[in-house]
Write a protein that binds this DNA or RNA. Structure first.
Lengths: 117, 117
DNA sequence: AGTATATATAACTGAATAGTTTTGTACTGG
DNA sequence: CCAGTACAAAACTATTCAGTTATATATACT
C-alpha cells in the first residue's frame, strides 16, 4: 500500500470512537474475541465485525484462530507511523506544543521509573 | 465539543491526503491564501474551501482577513491532542514501537542541538 | 447426524463525503 | 460606480459509511 494510502486508512480507522475503544481494550487486555469486544457496545455483532474489518484494512489488528473464535490482536506499527507523521511536523509547530511537551516529559518519567527495558 | 468528538473530527480531518498536504504546507510556509493553497491541486477552488471547512471544524486551522483574502492559519493544539492520545497507549504497545523510538530519539537530538528554547 | 456457538457475508437504508458547476458576496482599485 | 479578485454558498451527483436484519459458514459438543 502506498504510504499515503496507509496513513489515510489509519487516520480513518482512528476517527471512530467505537474503533478507538476497541483498540484501547486490546491494549489493556490483549487478544479478545469478537463477542467479548461487542458486549459493552449498544451495537450488533455484525457492526463490530465491520469495524474490525476497517481496523484490519489499516493493519491495526490481525486475527487469530481458536476453534470457532477469531481472536483480535493489536498491531501497533501503523500507530507508530501516524505518530511519526505527527511528530515529524512538530519542529514547525513547536511553539504551540506545550501540551505535547508535557506528555513527552511524563513519558520520559515513566520510562525512567520503569528502568531501561 | 466533547473530548471524543474532538478526536473524531481531528482524526477524520487527517484521513485525507489533500488535507494533510494543506497542513504540511501551512507548517512549512506559514499563513497561505485559499488560491495559493488550491494551486498545486487538480481540484476546484470550492473543493479546497470545503477541505478548509473540515480542518476548521476540527480546530486545525483558523482564518484571518486581509482585504478580500482569508489567509489560512495553522492551529496545532488538536494535533497535540491526538499525538497525546497515541502516545498514551505507547506504554502498552512499547515492544512494537522501535520505529517510534527512533523518531523520539531523533526529536530529542534535535532539541539538544537547538538548545533549550 | 444434529444442535449450539462464534463469526462472516449479504442485502438493505439513511446519512455523510468528496467532488462538480453555478451563483452570490465582499472587498479593491481605477 | 464598475470591473476584477478572492472566496463562500447552493444545488447536484456519485461514492462511502455505519448501522440494521437475516442468512450462511465453520467449528465444537453430544
Amino acid at each position: 500500500m502506498a504510504d499515503t494510502a496507509r496513513l489515510d486508512a489509519t487516520f480513518h480507522a482512528l476517527s471512530d470512537p467505537t474503533r478507538r475503544a476497541i483498540l484501547a481494550r486490546l491494549a489493556r487486555e490483549g487478544d479478545v474475541t469478537v463477542m467479548d469486544l461487542a458486549e459493552p457496545f449498544a451495537m450488533s455483532q455484525p457492526a463490530i465485525s465491520k469495524h474490525l474489518k476497517v481496523l484490519e484494512k489499516a493493519g491495526l489488528v490481525s486475527r487469530g484462530r481458536d476453534a470457532q473464535k477469531r481472536p483480535v490482536h493489536l498491531e501497533a506499527q501503523p500507530l507508530a507511523e501516524v505518530t511519526g507523521w505527527l511528530i515529524e511536523y512538530r519542529k514547525y509547530w513547536q511553539a504551540q506544543f506545550e501540551r505535547l511537551d508535557d506528555l513527552l516529559e511524563e513519558l520520559q518519567q515513566l520510562e525512567k521509573l520503569a528502568g531501561k527495558n
